[in-house]
Design a binder for these strands. Structure first.
Length: 498
RNA sequence: GACCCCGUCGUCUAGCCAGGUCUAGGACACAGGGUUUUCAUCCCUGCAACACGGGUUCAAAUCCCGUCGGGGUCACCA
C-alpha cells in the first residue's frame, strides 16, 4: 500500500505544461486555479513537464516556463528544481514506468500492438472524414505480428476502449456522458517508445497522487479516455474540473496565432504569453488578479483583491461555465490600480527588474532619481511601459520633440518670450526647490498677465519634448537646474532656427 | 459533418442550484459634468443586458422543452 505523503485527505493539484514555447496566459490561469486550490486546502501543488513530444519539446521552453511561473509567483512544492518524493517531474525521464504499464495492459488484454503507419492512418482519415480506428491491429494473427517484428517494423500500442458509456463527473460542468462509440482505441505508446499525453497524464497523476485535475475545457473529450484507462489499471479517478476557454476580443480561442495574424495585418501584436505581458509592463499581481476573474468570481462585488484574499475565497464551485473574452482595457485598469496602490518597496523592485526584459533609458537611473521619478509617475501610469516612456526625458538628453507640440507651444507667441524670461529667472533662483520654482512661474504669469497654460506648456515642451508631463514645477525640480536651463536653451535655439 | 459544452449590459461578472426582496447589482469601456497649468488620477451623473419561442407556476433571469447563436473536440500534439 502506497503511503500518501502529508496525510490521506491532502489535496494535490498540478500544472503540467508541455515545453513548446512560452507560458500562455490561459495556461497561467489554469496554473493559478490549481495553485489557489492547493494553497487554500493546505495541500500541494506540483509542476510537471510534459515533454513527450520529442519533435517539439525544448529545454529552452522549459526554462522559459519556469521563469514565467516564478515571475508570477506561482511556486511549486514538487517539480523541477525543487524535486520531491514522486519524481522525476519530466515525463521524458519516466519512460520505464509507461513501458511497464503498457506491457501490463497488453498482458491483461486491454492493449494491443498496431503496425499501421501514421501515413496510412492519415490516408484513411483523408478518405473518410468520420473515420474511426478500425481495430486492424487487433485482427492481426500472432504469426503476422511475429513476422512484422522480425522485419523490424515499428508499431504503436493502442488501448482497447471498453464497450460502454463513460460519464465524467465534472466539478464545474456536472455529469457529461459520452457514448463509447464516439471513442476509438487510442494510442498510448508511440512508435518512438514515448507515451502519448493520455497515457502519461493518467499514470503520472496516479503516481504523484494528484487528487484534483484542473485543465482547459478543450480537454473535456479526452477525459473519458483517461477514466477508461484508470478503470483498466485499477487506480482511482482524480476529481476533474474543466475550465472555460479564454477568448480573444473577436470571440475565438486566444492563441499564439493571433500574434501572427496581427503582424500580417500590419497591427501591433497582442500580448498572449505571460512574457508578452511582462514586457508590456504589467505587474504580476495585476495579471493574477485579472485572470482569476476570467471564469471565477468570489460572489460579491469584490474585484481587486490581494492574492492572500484570493486564496481565502477561492472555490472550484464558483468557477463559471461560460467562456470569457480577454479585455485588455480592463487589465490595464487593474494594472494602473496595482501600480498606484503598490507599496513603494514593491514598486521599486518591479521597476528595477523591468529593464531586464526591456530597454529604456530608465535602466540608467540612479536610486535618487528613480525615487523622484516614482513620486511623479506612480499615480499616473497604467503600465511600466507608459512609465518608462513618459519619464524617459529624465534619464536621457536625447529629447524627441513632438512636432505638433513644438508648433503649438514653442513657435507660437508667447513661447519664445516665456522661455527666455523664465530661463533667467530660474537661473537666478537662490534655491532649486519645487515651491520656489512654482512661485517663480506663478509670479511671472501674474506679472505678464498670462494664463498658467500659456506659460507652463512652452516650458513643458521645451524640457520634456512633449505637451504631457507631471506638473511643471515638479518636473523641473526633479530634472535639476542644470538640465532645465540647458534644455530651455536648446528649445530657444530650436525656435530661432527658422 | 459527428459528438460535447455554453448563452445576463460592448466586455468581465453577481443573481440561477434551494422561483417572488431584480423597475437585474458591481467593475472595465463609453458619454456628459466637476477638480486641474497639460496628461493621468479623483468625484458626480448617464448610457447599457436576462438570445428567441413555447411550456410549468399565483409568480421565471432563475425550472422543463425546442429553436437559433457561439465555442470546443475529433493526431504516433499536448
Amino acid at each position: 500500500m502506497r503511503h500518501i505523503s502529508g496525510g490521506c485527505n491532502m489535496v494535490v493539484t498540478r500544472f503540467a505544461p508541455s515545453p513548446t514555447g512560452y507560458l500562455h496566459i490561459g495556461g497561467a490561469r489554469t496554473a493559478l486555479f490549481s495553485w489557489l486550490l492547493a494553497k487554500q486546502q493546505k495541500g500541494r501543488f506540483i509542476l510537471r513537464i510534459e515533454d513527450t513530444d520529442q519533435a517539439r519539446s525544448t529545454e529552452e521552453s522549459t526554462q522559459k516556463i519556469l521563469q514565467d511561473m516564478k515571475w508570477l509567483g506561482l511556486d511549486w512544492q514538487e517539480g523541477p528544481e525543487v524535486g520531491g518524493p514522486n519524481g522525476p517531474y519530466f515525463q521524458s525521464q519516466r519512460l520505464e514506468i509507461y513501458r511497464q504499464w503498457a506491457q501490463k495492459l497488453m498482458a491483461m488484454g486491454r492493449a494491443y500492438k498496431c503496425f499501421a503507419t501514421p501515413e496510412e492512418m492519415a490516408a484513411e482519415r483523408a478518405k473518410d472524414k468520420g473515420f474511426k480506428y478500425d481495430r486492424r491491429g487487433l485482427k492481426l494473427t500472432p504469426e503476422q505480428i511475429a513476422a512484422y517484428e522480425a522485419e523490424g517494423r515499428p508499431c504503436v500500442i493502442r488501448f482497447k476502449m471498453p464497450d460502454k458509456d463513460i460519464t465524467v463527473h465534472d466539478m464545474i460542468l456536472g455529469d457529461v456522458t459520452l457514448k463509447t462509440s464516439e471513442l476509438e482505441d487510442f494510442v498510448i505508446l508511440k512508435s518512438d517508445g514515448f507515451p502519448t499525453y493520455h497515457f502519461a497524464v493518467v499514470l503520472d497523476d496516479y503516481y504523484m497522487q494528484v487528487t484534483h485535475v484542473l485543465r482547459g475545457q478543450e480537454h473535456l473529450m479526452n477525459t473519458p479516455k483517461h477514466i477508461a484507462l484508470q478503470e483498466a489499471m485499477g487506480v482511482p479517478h482524480p476529481a476533474y474540473a474543466h475550465l472555460p476557454v479564454i477568448f480573444n476580443m473577436e470571440g475565438g480561442k486566444m492563441s499564439k496565432r493571433d500574434k501572427e495574424k496581427a503582424i500580417k495585418a500590419g497591427k501591433t501584436p497582442p500580448e498572449i504569453d505571460v512574457f508578452d505581458f511582462r514586457i508590456g509592463g504589467y505587474m504580476p499581481e495585476a495579471i493574477l488578479n485579472f485572470i482569476a476573474l476570467l471564469g471565477w468570481s468570489p460572489g460579491n462585488d469584490l474585484e481587486l483583491m490581494p492574492i492572500s484574499q484570493m486564496i481565502e475565497m477561492f472555490s472550484v464551485e464558483r468557477i463559471g461555465k461560460t467562456n470569457a473574452r480577454f479585455d485588455r482595457e480592463k487589465l490595464r485598469s487593474f494594472n494602473m490600480q496595482y501600480i498606484k496602490n503598490a507599496p513603494r518597496d514593491r514598486l521599486r523592485e518591479v521597476v528595477k527588474q523591468f529593464p531586464e526584459v526591456t530597454d529604456y533609458p530608465m535602466k540608467n537611473a540612479d536610486n535618487a532619481m528613480l525615487e523622484k521619478m516614482l513620486d511623479l509617475y506612480q499615480p499616473r501610469s497604467r503600465t511600466l511601459v507608459e512609465m518608462a516612456e513618459n519619464s524617459r526625458f529624465f534619464f536621457t538628453d536625447e529629447i524627441h520633440y513632438d512636432t505638433k507640440a513644438v508648433e503649438k507651444f514653442l513657435k507660437k507667441e508667447p513661447g519664445e518670450q516665456v522661455l527666455t524670461d523664465l530661463k533667467d529667472r530660474l537661473a537666478a533662483l537662490p534655491e532649486w526647490q519645487p515651491h520656489a520654482i512654482e512661485k517663480t512661474i506663478e509670479d511671472y504669469c501674474t506679472e505678464k498677465q498670462l494664463g498658467m497654460g500659456k506659460v507652463a506648456q512652452p516650458i513643458r515642451v521645451a524640457v520634456t519634448g512633449s505637451s504631457v508631463s507631471p506638473s511643471v514645477h515638479e518636473t523641473l525640480e526633479v530634472l535639476g537646474r542644470k538640465k532645465t536651463l540647458s534644455r530651455l536653451d536648446n528649445a530657444i535655439s530650436l525656435i530661432r532656427q527658422n
